[in-house]
Every structure is written in C-alpha cells, then in structure tokens.
C-alpha cells in the first residue's frame, strides 16, 4: 500500500517538476515555440477533458451513489465545462484581433464584442465562475466523505 501511494506521487512530481525546472529544454528539444506551446496546452485540456469524461462515465450508475458522490459528479461536470470553456478561450484568443482589446495606459481596459464567439471568449475570461463552484462541490464531496468516514 505504501508503495502504491509513493509511486504515482513520484510520477506526478517528475512529470511536473521536469518541465518546470527545464522549460526551455522541453521547448528547446522540440523547438516549436509560439503556437506549439498553445497546442500542447490545448492538448492538455483535451486530455483533461478526456480524463474527466472517462471519470464521469465510470461514475454513472449506482456504483457511485450516496453522500458526496453527487457533489463529486457535479464537480466533474463543472470541471469538464470549465475545460471546454477555457479550451475555447485559449483557441479563440489566438484568433482574436488585438484590436478587440481596448487598451488604457498600455493595459487592457475593455473588450469589443462583435460576435457570439467574442462574447463566449469574454465569458471564457470569467472561467472562475465555473472553477470556484467546481472546487466548492469538490470540497462538499470531500466534506461529506470525511463526515461519513
């Protein structure tokens, strides 16, 4: 049991720490830069969404019923929505003309919405409105589980 806990932690740490400590090497080795970084990030979101979908799929049915599980499912759903929203935001950002941003003193002060895509982009900038409730549901699920334990 102890080994089973340490092993994934180590995988995660290595996976996270290496790109953090050697970001250039990561990029450098691939030598893509620019949009390639975005694409890899978007792939990350897709993987995130895929993982969450798989998880959500597995949680169907009565096998994951009971106190906390509904909150957890809501959390997963909100996370999926958040990923879709932010995926769209990252993708659409590359397509938006810089003119759409209203600068003031060199800083973005407003955004010009000229299409639903722009509006959706603007909403994607407000992704915390999904993320914070999602984590609240996670907190609620953990609280209930903890309480049941």
């Amino acid at each position: 049991m102890h080994y089973n806990r340490i092993f994934p932690v180590c995988i995660c740490i290595i996976t996270v720490v290496l790109p953090l400590l050697l970001p250039d090497s990561v990029w450098g080795v691939q030598q893509h830069g620019g949009a390639e970084g975005l694409i890899s990030h978007q792939i990350g979101h897709l993987l995130f969404i895929t993982g969450m979908l798989v998880l959500f799929y597995r949680l169907r049915g009565s096998s994951a019923s009971g106190a906390g599980w509904l909150d957890f499912k809501i959390f997963i759903g909100l996370i999926i929505l958040w990923n879709l929203l932010t995926f769209y935001g990252h993708w659409h950002r590359e397509l938006i003309s810089p003119d759409k941003f209203v600068l003031f003193a060199g800083k973005v002060n407003g955004f010009s919405i000229s299409s639903p895509a722009d509006a959706l982009f603007y909403l994607s900038r407000l992704d915390h409105l999904l993320l914070v409730p999602a984590f609240l549901f996670l907190l609620s699920a953990l609280y209930k589980w903890r309480k049941q334990a």
């Binding site: 953090l20 990029w27 990030h41 990350g44 993987l47 895929t50 998880l55 597995r58």
Partner: peptide, 26 residues
C-alpha cells in the same frame, strides 16, 4: 507565462492520468 502554462499542462496530464485510471483504481 510558459512556466505557468507548462505547469498547468502537466497538471492536466496528471489529472488525465488519474481520470483514465479511475476505473482501474475502482
């Protein structure tokens, strides 16, 4: 910002991994 994006990407991958391994764990 690349570092931030990389960490987030790494976090996504980890979460993905956990997501697809949910059934396995379950």
């Amino acid at each position: 910002s690349p570092f931030s994006g990389a960490v987030n990407s790494a976090a996504f991958i980890i979460i993905f991994a956990f997501g697809i391994y949910f059934q396995r764990f379950r």
